[in-house]
Design a protein around this nucleic acid. Structure first.
Lengths: 235, 235
DNA sequence: CGTGCTTTTGAATAGTATCAAGGCCGGTGG
DNA sequence: CCACCGGCCTTGATACTATTCAAAAGCACG
């Protein structure tokens, strides 16, 4: 993992801090706290106070919501450049937890600095707003999938969401993230056993294959085709 | 329904346009298109091009996602001051539809004006960003509910969402919106029959009552208590 | 080469969707 | 004023799907 990047010279495609004025880049750079987390570690835990927001320099994070029945729902996935842990500006305590899916370098920026930065850097604020609006749209889509689809289609839609968020390895078809069956189940809103059954079935059909935690999509058009009816016609 | 409000003098609590400079208030006021829609009418339909965003002056709107199997999922509810139809700035066609739940006065502001307004009015942009971040959080909560809850709890969580969005009538316990069983089912991600069964059961327990389309919550603490385990502990 | 963890498989159970029929209510027209 | 009609809601029976529980198999690790 590289050194902490200097915001003044960083031009990472998805990080909007570069849209701030030089003055603010310096300020953010001075006050940010950069931390590298190992895989499977809490970045913050549900119930702890919200002090600021997190920006992913490099890495992968899942945002999970735990209930007191021991069930877990992964509500969102985030990767390079994405923001998490915002929870709107007013919440006092996190209602959700964030866990790394990979070793991750993450910047923390405290609320006070961030709010001032938003008020004084319109392009930064605007792009962040657009980011949230897009995430909202994705979430609406995911809501529909979890709500209307049967088990197998939920798994397919989840694989699609994973690949859209994290992309693929060099072969352009193996998902660029290692997830357990339980992690996939928590994303899809189902159980470990159902995930296993669906993956076995999809492998039988030759639509995908997998080795350990690596899933390779062999026939994306078949998978897509099975769930296409749930998505709006884009013509 | 009152006359179209002049943005320069309007101080509606939830409309962020009042945070713009006077110059921009004038500009928005000149270019906005105000329209009053009757109940149960499409404001826009899935598949049509996105030209701008809608702001609710007064009224109630649901955002629905239809699939080609004839199922419908209501992804979001919006009322006075809320924005809808944004779909992030780049989408060309609406992937969802918006339908009024009541006679509604709605402002349309075209994308070009809106984007310029965002770039030049930091407080406006900032508050809009916070609005989206909050909506995202709500959506995450809703996602979890639809995914992990059983039928009855989904209905309870849905009633809670409805009351949080639209509030109550003067008696402070009757939901301030008329919804059919199907509309509740589409919100909760279940069927008309299950909604009916759950409502009958909850009425039997004396937790709520209803008369036609009006639902009155009698024992909010009982309802709350049954689903509290799904929400984060706030202490 | 065991040991423990994850995944797979099978069988039983519970919960939900679907289908079909009947009831309630408001509106309309005689 | 009453009878009829149609839409929405309720109820019951059935079929299906998903969850749960239990056990076996596969795999990584020491």
């Amino acid at each position: 993992m590289k050194e902490a990047t200097d915001c003044r010279v960083c031009d990472k495609a998805d990080c909007f801090i570069k849209l701030c004025s030089d003055h603010w880049k310096v300020k953010i750079n001075q006050t940010k706290i950069v931390c590298t987390y190992p895989k499977d570690q809490y970045v913050f835990k549900s119930g702890t106070p919200v002090m600021g927001a997190y920006f992913i320099c490099e890495g992968k994070v899942k945002v999970v919501s735990e209930d007191s029945n021991g069930h877990e729902q992964t509500v969102r996935l985030a990767n390079d450049g994405h923001i998490f842990g915002h929870v709107a500006v007013k919440s006092e305590f996190y209602p959700i937890s964030a866990i790394t899916l990979d070793q991750s370098k993450i910047c923390f920026i405290e609320n006070e600095v961030l709010e001032d930065a938003y008020m004084e850097n319109a392009p930064f604020t605007f792009q962040t707003m657009v980011f949230y609006a897009r995430e909202l749209r994705k979430m609406e889509e995911r809501l529909k999938c979890l709500s209307l689809m049967n088990n197998e289609n939920k798994i397919i839609a989840t694989l699609k969401y994973i690949s859209q968020t994290f992309g693929c390895l060099e072969d352009a078809r193996t998902l660029n993230v290692k997830l357990t069956r339980k992690e996939i189940a928590d994303l899809a809103g189902t159980t470990i056993e159902q995930v296993s059954r669906s993956l076995v079935e999809l492998k039988k059909r030759g639509w995908l294959t997998y080795k350990q935690k690596y899933i390779t999509i062999l026939q994306p058009e078949k998978l897509e085709n099975q769930i296409v009816g749930f998505y709006p016609v884009t013509e």
